[in-house]
C-alpha cells in the first residue's frame, strides 16, 4: 500500500478509517479513475483457493455453503488450483512439514495475491503454541498475511467480516506503486 506519511500519528496509522479518508482526499496523487475501476473489479471477484488443513476448514466450508453463502460478497468460486486463485485462506494449523508446501502454493499464485490467516492456529499457533515440536507459530513466518481472523474456529460471520476487510484493503490499492508480495519483514495488517 502506497501510504507513506511522516507527520501522521501512529494511532491514526492503525485506524483504517483515517487511512481511507486520507487516501480519498489526496494523500495519493495517482489515485485515478482507473484505479477505482480496477480495484472495484478486483475486490468484488476474489477467488479463494480450496486450502484447508484442519478444523477451521470446516467452518470455511460452512461459510461457502447454503446458509452463510460466501458468494454474496463476491468471494465466489473455490478454485482447486493456486494459479487461478487470488486469495489463500489459511484455514488451520500449519506444521513444519506443511510449511514448504504452503510457501510453494503461495508462490504459484499469480499477482495480485492475498493471504487471510483464519483461526488462532494460523495467527499464532493457537492451542498448539506450547510444548509441541511440530507446529509453526503463526503463518506469517511463512507467507505475508493481509488479514488476521482470530477465533478457534472463527465463526462464519467472522470470516465474512475478514473478507470484507480484505476488500476494503484492495480498494485502497493503486496501480502506480507495485504491491509488496515478497515478505520484507514488515507485517501488513488490518486491524479487526
Amino acid at each position: 500500500m502506497g501510504v507513506r506519511i511522516k507527520n501522521m500519528k501512529y494511532a491514526d496509522f492503525q485506524d483504517n478509517e483515517t487511512l481511507e479518508l486520507f487516501e480519498k482526499t489526496g494523500g495519493n496523487v495517482m489515485l485515478t479513475t482507473i484505479d477505482d475501476v480496477i480495484d472495484w473489479g478486483r475486490s468484488n471477484s476474489i477467488w479463494p483457493l480450496t486450502f484447508a488443513t484442519s478444523c477451521c476448514g470446516i467452518e470455511m466450508m460452512a461459510t461457502g455453503a447454503s446458509r452463510h453463502d460466501f458468494a454474496r460478497f463476491g468471494i465466489e468460486v473455490y478454485r482447486a488450483s493456486p494459479r487461478q486463485a487470488d486469495v489463500i485462506v489459511v484455514a488451520g494449523t500449519i506444521v513444519n512439514k506443511m510449511a514448504p508446501v504452503l510457501k510453494r502454493l503461495y508462490d504459484q499464485m499469480s499477482d495480485p495475491k492475498y493471504v487471510i490467516a483464519m483461526g488462532a492456529c494460523a495467527v499464532s499457533g493457537g492451542p498448539f503454541f506450547y510444548n509441541t515440536y511440530h507446529v509453526i507459530r503463526g503463518v506469517d513466518h511463512v507467507v505475508p498475511v493481509d488479514v488476521y481472523i482470530p477465533g478457534c474456529p472463527p465463526r462464519p460471520e467472522a470470516l465474512l467480516y475478514g473478507v470484507m476487510q480484505l476488500q476494503r484493503k484492495i480498494k485502497l490499492e493503486t496501480i502506480a506503486k507495485e504491491r509488496k508480495t515478497k515478505d520484507d519483514g514488515r507485517r501488513r495488517t488490518i486491524k479487526l
Binding site: 478444523c55 488451520g92 494449523t93 506444521v95 506443511m98 492451542p127 498448539f128 510444548n131 509441541t132
Partner: peptide
C-alpha cells in the same frame, strides 16, 4: 501423512486431564 501432525500426544504429557479434553476436540 504428517502434514498436520501437531504432536497432541506430546502435549498431553504436560497437560492436566481437563486440558486434554480441549485437545481431543481438535
Amino acid at each position: 501423512c504428517g502434514y498436520i501432525h501437531r504432536g497432541i500426544e506430546k502435549m498431553c504429557e504436560k497437560d492436566t486431564y481437563q486440558q486434554i479434553i480441549h485437545l481431543t476436540d481438535r
